[in-house]
């Protein structure tokens, strides 16, 4: 089986399972699933759907990107590049040091930004549900 088929089939099953998991009522599960597959009278899309999609598309894309191991992919790519350009060694060492410093400074700025943004969101009292009451 080609890889892509495996990915699609797994994600598909997982999404269906999340529907079953999200609702406690069997009737609601049925309605939701049949809407997803166009089995009832639901329209394909309307102005409201587009409105919500537009408002949330960025955070959904960030979420999807965050669900793949981007860090490992970049590391692999960087390593490959290094091997290619390994001819002029002395110059490379200096470059690497510079690069590492730049990366670590950027990373620190990102961490501080995430902390500040999270704090702002918490202070703002925005939607912050606690999902683990039943454990």
């Amino acid at each position: 089986m080609p890889k892509i088929v495996g990915h699609i089939y797994t994600l598909f099953l997982v999404l269906i399972s999340w529907v079953i998991f999200a609702f406690e009522d069997l009737g609601q599960i049925g309605t939701y699933l049949s809407t997803m597959f166009g089995l009832n009278s639901a329209n394909l899309a309307n102005a409201e759907a587009i409105y919500y999609l537009k408002n949330y598309i960025i955070i959904i894309i960030i979420g999807i990107i965050g669900s793949i191991p981007l860090k490992n992919i970049i590391k692999k790519w960087a390593k490959n590049n290094e091997n290619k350009t390994n001819k002029s060694k002395n110059k490379n060492v200096v470059n690497m040091k510079k690069r590492d410093i730049v990366i670590s400074v950027c990373a620190s700025i990102c961490f501080i930004a995430v902390l500040l943004l999270s704090t702002a969101s918490l202070v703002n009292n925005s939607f912050n549900p606690f999902l683990y009451f039943r454990f």
Binding site: T35, G38, A42, Y52, N128
Partner: peptide, 29 residues
Amino acid sequence: VLIANNVGALWNVIETGAFGEMTVLLSWV
């Protein structure tokens, strides 16, 4: 806080049906 809570807010709206008509696109989103 930045990702789960935000997409969660969208799901909260869709799940409770706190808007007009449900569509295929919105159910997948």
